[in-house]
């Protein structure tokens, strides 16, 4: 890795001499938006959708260029953001609870203080689904089945240490029952196993179920209010089960971003979010939006980290 560090050092020396001068006119060159996943994933589509709007509201004819740095379920990209220079020309996508959970179950070169929290844009609540021909088609029946024989209910989900896993832990606490986790490494395989009836129930996100409403029973959605993507799905709260959880996707910059740059970026995110065209584009790509800007996002992150810590300490998953 020697070459790489030398290369980085050279790059740093070369570029640091150029850009300390004028931060007043941010942005004055192109902005790299680092995405920790391959082109075509949900996070990537979000980044590419928001790019043109940010360009518009940041002004100065700036360009926002998406750079994919896939690998280690987003960790490579997010680490690159944390280690980038805090000048506003490198921002990146950010996934919760995954990014924070990785600081617990892996060696991560970043922590919650490594970032300037810009905006969380997507909140994709969890849903519980069962096969269409399953007898278990309400929460009551599910809880009954789970309590009758511990571990008899098999739960398909995408991975351990993600939002679906944390949701299951909450469910397990609330319903006082044990479930068997079957992590399929991806929501789509989990959903297919469910449609084939190979597992009892599944935990996925609402955006992943809207195209499969006729093929699956959806027992409830883990949000405060019903989702605009599918407003016929009752929330768990309505059904008397206190469960709120979901996958969050947003944008961060490296820590210690200059105040004027941060203010400009926050303003651009706010204006983007208020743009009806943007809302429509996000809806078309199946992304349920919900904005948490700046400090709100930061406290949201702290909340998620707390949740991950609690579960990691009581039920470590590896």
């Amino acid at each position: 890795m020697g070459f790489k560090s030398i290369a980085i050092a050279t790059a740093l020396i070369l570029s640091s001499s150029m850009s300390t001068a004028a931060l007043a006119d941010y942005p004055e060159k192109r902005i790299d938006m680092i995405v920790g996943f391959a082109a075509g994933g949900g996070t990537d589509v979000m980044a590419r959708t928001i790019g043109p709007y940010l360009e518009k509201y940041l002004g100065n004819d700036t360009s926002v260029v998406v750079k994919n740095m896939p690998g280690a379920s987003g960790q490579i990209g997010v680490t690159a953001v944390a280690e980038a220079r805090p000048d506003g020309y490198t921002i990146g996508t950010y996934n919760l609870p995954g990014t924070m959970a990785r600081t617990l179950d892996r060696d991560a070169d970043y922590d919650a203080d490594s970032f300037t929290y810009l905006a969380n844009v997507v909140n994709d609540p969890n849903v519980i689904v069962t096969p269409k021909n399953s007898d278990i088609d309400t929460m009551d029946k599910l809880v009954e089945a789970a309590q009758k024989r511990p571990g008899a209910v098999t739960v398909a989900m995408s991975s351990l240490g993600g939002d679906d896993h944390f949701f299951l832990q909450k469910l397990s606490d609330v319903t006082d029952a044990d479930y068997t986790v079957v992590p399929f490494s991806g929501s789509a395989p989990a959903r297919s196993a469910l449609m084939g009836g190979h597992v009892t129930m599944g935990i996925i996100n609402v955006s992943e179920v809207v195209a499969f409403r006729d093929e699956l029973n959806v027992l409830g959605i883990a949000s405060e209010e019903r989702s605009s993507l599918a407003d016929d799905i009752p929330t768990f709260k309505e059904q008397g089960v206190d469960l709120v959880n979901g996958a969050l996707r947003g944008f961060v910059a490296p820590a210690n971003l200059p105040d004027n740059v941060k203010a400009k970026l926050l303003d651009a995110f706010q204006k983007t979010y208020d743009d009806p065209d943007f809302q429509q584009a996000m809806r078309r790509s199946g992304n349920p939006t919900e904005l948490a800007l700046g400090d709100d996002f930061k406290s949201l992150n702290a909340e998620q980290l707390e949740l991950a810590k609690r579960i990691w300490e009581t039920h470590p998953w590896k």
């Binding site: 589509v45 959903r191 297919s192």
Partner: peptide, 28 residues
């Protein structure tokens, strides 16, 4: 139909569909 690609190349192509807002599934 299910969002589960049969090959590595199909997996990448699925990304090509998603980027155009084409979500796999019966609704597609």
């Amino acid at each position: 139909t299910l969002g589960i690609p049969g090959t590595a190349v199909a997996a990448v192509m699925l990304g090509g569909l998603l980027i155009h807002g084409l979500q796999p599934g019966p609704m597609l």
